[in-house]
Design a protein around this nucleic acid. Structure first.
Lengths: 360, 360
DNA sequence: CTGAAAGCGCTTACAG
DNA sequence: CTGAAAGCGCTTACAG
């Protein structure tokens, strides 16, 4: 449990009866102008069959009263809510916050709102959020799957109702929807190849869990680079994280560096893990980059701050978010225009690249 | 401009006509059961005047058809949307993502949804978001003010319509609403006092911009600690950031350390700035903590990763978010219950504490 | 050029 | 115990 710093009852100092001021509606404008709601509605939407005079009067009064259309009424009537749902595994995360930033800035330009929900990496909660977003009549959904999610059946609800879905980063390639991912294989390949070019002969890989595609892809890239260089892929040099955090990096690095034939290079699945490696190396007096070269993955803030600064693979979070949002909105709008829509499996792959720093 | 990695048109592979499956409504249930919408509605809400038999039949069919009430219709009718609006200056930010996490987890337990918007630290955009959230009929608003925001007149719209508002972290103390803040004065005081206790005699402060209350409070705490210890407050030892980033910390530290009478301790307004100080010190060969002791503020991830690990003031982001959300929801629900509400100025202050690491 | 009417999906006071 | 009716705020096909 978290600290209960918060008292149970807030000191609400006064509660005074106030007539809840009501929002200005079309009716208010109509009444003041002595015309109908119909005419007001049409005037505001610039229908050609309304007189210039009326239009002007309506617009002026609307501006004066700061009229704002009721989005709920609009959504109820028009079957479009201008709201997009997002399901994200966690929010305290450099990469994901960049993704969200990209999503929000894109949606802002398009006049869509973002309803954001958390799966906390739980498939059960993820399913619940799908239902919640469906109940909220979002026009589309963006999701990065929970780590533990294998079966994606809970997303079928969306396809059944023709609600466009775009998966990003953590995706399920078999599911019939659009996807935005990075080229993890290429990323792992570039990282490993870089270590090889720096003269490493025994390269270890601290990888992610067995099932997420990202972890698999990065591992494949690692193997590919080794093979291409004619280096042996020694299975004892590959360790698999569960939590993918600094501590695991630290522990695995200690094991690797203590082994009879320690590695001279380590490619870690994330920057966090790589920083754990740096800490272990420091503790054991293994000089980085002289005796051990380290490459991370993500290009997060800590990569810059680490000592030595970490060489890493840039993972374009902002662009991924922007691309996913864009893919979704364009799909929504095309479907709208054509009055027809069917989910298709389609993927867009963003490139990654190496950021060279002091650790290699 | 950002990289245009994204093609202009997505390859939408097929678009096939599909009869948009319609959402199941009360009407559907009523028709199948040969009863009225009224009865169905009452049955689902467990009204006492509906027969057990009918209730059971309705519930069963509703479950079978996976009926979900239309939240727009509910909101339109009931004047409650179960949606909270959030306006945040930026999202790629350790502290703010923790705040959001606290907010979301609390709202989740209470069955509220979160509509999240960005001010990008612009007062203009902040005002726009207030209007947007108002138009969306949120039940309440949470905001952390943009750095440049001085005049908060754009929030009056909310009070006019009796929409509860809670400001957190970056607040305006004069505005008539509830606030959740940390004790910045105490934080600055603790940080500075710690440096004094470690033997520092000439303590510099790299502070934030002139207007945000956080920066002012931390600075005041700094002065208070100096005064209490009988140390002179040398104005040449105080530098004021504009962007509050690593680079500014680096630059100011260089100036301070190059001066004729360099400081032996530096209290920086954030961890980012403090890390800049560490980098400058390293470059100039000034040993930390032997020759220079450094304290940051926030307890962000980079504080742990920095070399040496940074002593800092813990700023409880999660708890701030949770407290703000809780304050808001409780206010909403009390107002609802009593049928009356009036904004009151009220503040809740969360404590901070020192995290000792290697930099001091 | 303007307006009456129906309807989106729901709830609730009222009638039977 | 069940249902007809009104209404939340809007839009739009249709009539005048």
């Amino acid at each position: 449990m978290r600290n209960r710093l918060i008292p149970n009852i807030w000191p609400i100092k006064k509660l005074v009866l106030v007539t809840m001021k009501h929002r200005v509606t079309l009716k208010d404008i109509a009444q003041r102008l002595g015309i109908t709601v119909t005419t007001v509605s049409k005037a505001l939407k610039d229908y050609p069959d309304i007189s210039k005079k009326t239009k002007e009067a309506v617009r002026e009064l609307a501006a004066q009263l700061k009229y704002q259309p009721d989005s709920q009424a609009l959504a109820l009537r028009g079957s479009k809510s201008y709201t997009i749902g997002l399901i994200i595994p966690e929010i305290v995360h450099f990469f994901f916050s960049n993704v969200i930033n990209g999503i929000m800035n894109y949606l802002e330009t398009k006049g869509y709102r973002l309803l954001i929900t958390l799966s906390n990496n739980s498939t059960e909660l993820e399913a619940k959020q799908v239902n919640l977003l469906f109940g909220n009549k979002v026009d589309g959904v963006l999701v990065s799957l929970a780590n533990e999610t294998v079966d994606v059946g809970h997303f079928k609800l969306l396809s059944e109702y023709d609600i466009p879905l775009v998966m990003f980063d953590k995706v399920n390639l078999d599911f019939n929807c659009q996807k935005v991912i990075i080229d993890d294989v290429a990323g792992g390949y570039i990282a490993t190849k870089h270590l090889i070019s720096k003269g490493c002969k025994r390269i270890a890989h601290i990888r992610g869990p067995k099932s997420p595609l990202n972890a698999i892809g990065r591992y494949e890239g690692y193997l590919k680079a080794l093979e291409e260089a004619g280096l042996d892929a020694d299975p004892s040099l590959v360790k698999s994280c569960k939590l993918v955090n600094l501590e695991e990096g630290y522990e695995f690095a200690k094991i690797l560096l203590h082994s009879p034939a320690p590695p001279d290079g380590i490619f870690a699945v994330t920057d966090q893990v790589a920083v754990g490696v740096l800490q272990a190396a420091k503790e054991l007096g293994v000089k980085v980059p002289q005796k051990l070269k380290v490459v991370g993955f993500s290009d997060s803030l800590i990569a810059q701050v680490a000592e030595p600064a970490l060489t890493t693979i840039h993972q374009p979070g902002y662009e991924i978010g922007e691309a996913a949002a864009r893919m979704l909105i364009e799909t929504i709008e095309i479907a709208e225009e054509k009055g027809e829509y069917m989910a298709v499996s389609d993927q867009f792959i963003l490139p990654t690249y190496l950021i060279r720093r002091k650790s290699s």
